[in-house]
Amino acid sequence: MANLSVNINKIATLRNSRGGNNPDLVKVALDCERFGAQGITVHPRPDERHIRYQDVFDLKAVIATEFNIEGNCSEQKFVDLVLSNKPAQVTLVPDSEGQLTSNHGWDTIKHQDYLKEMVSVFKNAGIRVSIFVDPVTEMIEAAATTGTDRIELYTEAYAHHYQQDKAAAIAPYVKAAHKAVELGLGLNAGHDLDLNNLKYFNEQIPSLLEVSIGHALIADALYLGLEKTIQMYLQQLSN
């Protein structure tokens, strides 16, 4: 069964919209764990528009499941933040400053040497590394040369085309997953996965280790309640 890591960025966005500490980000993270989530994901950005750098320290002090910090390693402040907290996993995402949300994977061919350097920095600190990539065989092959432990497949294209033709939508991801396994890479996935498309994705990619889900899960929780929503997502990942 693939693990569910709940991205709590949207909780931080809601908190920040009014100031203060309501909702309490740390309490929500602990509740997500209590409701069955196997991990907590945060994606701090330089403007701290949702996750603040202090949040990372506060969460690291209490989280009992896997802690995953996503972000752009070209920002030294991000690198320092990760090294100071030593999460279970760091996911390297090629975001530009001010970007609304992640919208593409790394060009692991063009940035191969740079990624080798950054992967080494984090692995030497005992942190598992995952690189955010599109489902393109060449990019996965190049990612494997960097020394990364895992890749995270960017699943927006799958989610976008799922309703029209789910078999065609999943095909490049199945091919990518086979290549990752062949190269000895662990496999994560994330972006726009939800209660409609998650089960099929999980069924077609049995090598899947972890999904990171935030926006859709938190939106569903507004209607269903957080505990029930997490249980429903876990059901989609059960074999």
Rank of each mutant, 00 (worst) to 15 (best):
A180C: 06
R52T: 14
G20F: 04
L226H: 02
V129C: 00
T155N: 05
A88D: 14
R45T: 01
Q89I: 03
I11F: 12
P94W: 03
A29S: 07
H104F: 12
R34T: 01
K27W: 07
I140K: 04
A221F: 11
D113F: 08
A88E: 15
P44F: 10
A189K: 01
E152F: 07
I213N: 05
I151C: 00
A189H: 08
N68K: 11
G71K: 08
G19F: 05
E48V: 15
L115Y: 00
R34C: 08
D192Y: 09
D194T: 05
G225D: 06
I140Q: 11
D58A: 10
L83Q: 13
R52K: 12
I51D: 01
D58T: 12
L224F: 13
V28L: 10
I51N: 02
V90H: 11
R15L: 14
D80R: 11
L81C: 08
Q231M: 11
A12Y: 03
D80I: 07
H160I: 14
Y173F: 15
F78E: 09
I69E: 14
Y158M: 10
L195W: 06
A180P: 02
I230F: 05
E156M: 13
H161Q: 12
F132T: 03
N197V: 14
T137F: 11
V119S: 01
G36E: 09
D192E: 07
R45N: 02
V129M: 05
Q164F: 13
D220M: 12
V211E: 08
A144S: 15
T41F: 01
Q76G: 03
Y173S: 07
V93F: 10
D80W: 10
E66G: 07
E152Q: 13
D55K: 03
L234S: 04
E210A: 07
L224E: 10
L193S: 04
N197M: 09
D220W: 13
K166M: 14
Q38L: 05
D220P: 07
L185F: 00
A219G: 06
A88L: 00
I11D: 06
Q89K: 11
N103T: 12
L234D: 06
E227R: 07
M139D: 11
T146S: 02
S130I: 11
A125G: 11
D31E: 13
N197Q: 00
K175I: 15
N188W: 13
N9F: 07
G105V: 03
F78Y: 07
S207C: 14
L83A: 07
S130H: 08
K110P: 10
D80F: 08
L187R: 08
A2F: 08
Q235L: 08
K77D: 12
T65N: 15
L193H: 04
A219M: 04
E97A: 14
I11Q: 06
Q76W: 13
A61P: 03
Q163R: 10
S207M: 13
V174H: 06
